[in-house]
């Protein structure tokens, strides 16, 4: 009991530096942001929920939210599956495992600004991709990959390229925690490779799955860097996302619109977190039974 009290005091001491900064730089100003979302542009008159109505009906906001959601729903499942497949392959690759691992993680540390130069070599009108395609069939027209409808796919691919290594490391950590004896037992029972993956590997990786999803989301918003560097601040409609929108509002210092949208996004994130937690909690409860 005494130790518990002591620990509570100590944790206050240990957390104080972190919490005080979070309070000054996040919480306090966010309260101000919430306040401003109910005021007019001058920050004087109370507007009720007028700002929310305006932002909700705003074409750009709708487009950006839709595209962001579309991107998350496309890129994260793809990353999830592909990185898992790669990690399984790397885990079982005897020789050369080191090289494969190092190579696949490398894109994570390469600055977007540097690698975008090479993407342009591949993707521009006179670039390698178009040359290869017209080499296969002379009838294919050159495509401006970055500025047309294909921009979305380009962005998804760059996201996968950059983040697959990190997620692979997470999966590998999960994989190495699975005792080899489980596989041996399965082999004795006559289970093949795929059966082992389905009945042993995947169930054992459940804890890693949550972490992979969270960190994939964290990294997904950084794809704005690639989007901006490839296509500028006014990209194709299909990749106009929340960061672009905020960038434009920020230029005109449209504080009450940004505040309102920020509050809406935090609410959306909270809702998503609640669903996520519910799914995870529900499953844990089921398992403990």
């Amino acid at each position: 009991m005494k130790r518990k009290r002591r620990q509570a005091w100590l944790s206050v001491l240990f957390l104080a530096p972190s919490l005080s900064g979070v309070f000054v730089f996040m919480i306090l100003p966010f309260v101000d942001v919430v306040r401003r979302s109910f005021l007019d542009a001058m920050g004087k008159t109370f507007m009720g929920t007028d700002n929310y109505g305006l932002v909700w009906k705003n074409e750009a906001f709708r487009l950006a939210s839709r595209n962001t959601l579309h991107f998350l729903m496309t890129a994260i499942p793809l990353l999830f599956v592909l990185s898992l497949v790669l990690s399984l392959l790397v885990y079982r690759a005897g020789k050369g495992r080191r090289i494969f691992k190092t190579s696949l993680v490398l894109p994570m540390v390469i600055p977007a600004a540097a690698v975008v130069l090479v993407w342009k070599i591949f993707l521009c009108m006179d670039g390698i991709l178009n040359q290869v395609l017209s080499g296969i069939s002379g009838e294919i027209q050159n495509v401006d990959w970055v500025h047309g409808e294909t921009a979305f796919s380009v962005l998804v691919v760059t996201y996968l390229w950059k983040n697959i290594g990190y997620d692979m490391l997470l999966w590998l950590a999960g994989l190495s925690a699975i005792p080899e004896s489980l596989y041996d037992a399965a082999r004795v029972d006559g289970a093949g490779g795929l059966a082992q993956i389905w009945y042993i590997t995947l169930p054992c990786l459940q804890k890693t799955m949550g972490l992979v999803v969270i960190l994939s989301i964290v990294n997904s918003f950084r794809v704005y860097r690639e989007a901006y560097l490839l296509a500028g601040s006014y990209p194709d409609q299909t990749i106009y996302m929340i960061p672009h929108l905020f960038g434009h509002w920020f230029l005109t210092l449209d504080v009450q619109k940004m505040s309102t949208a920020a509050v809406l996004l935090v609410l959306a994130a909270l809702a998503a977190a609640a669903v996520f937690e519910l799914l995870l909690y529900g499953r844990n409860k089921e398992r403990s039974r």
Binding site: V22, V24, F25, M26, L28, P29, F30, D32, V33, I214, I217, V218, F221, I242, P243, F246, G247, F250, V255, M258, S259, A262, L265, V266, A269, L270, A273
Partner: peptide, 20 residues
Amino acid sequence: FYILLMVLPFQVTQVSNYLV
């Protein structure tokens, strides 16, 4: 709460940060 802060994109906290 810390996880939520971590997941929120920079743009959401940008307004708050800018004000401070």
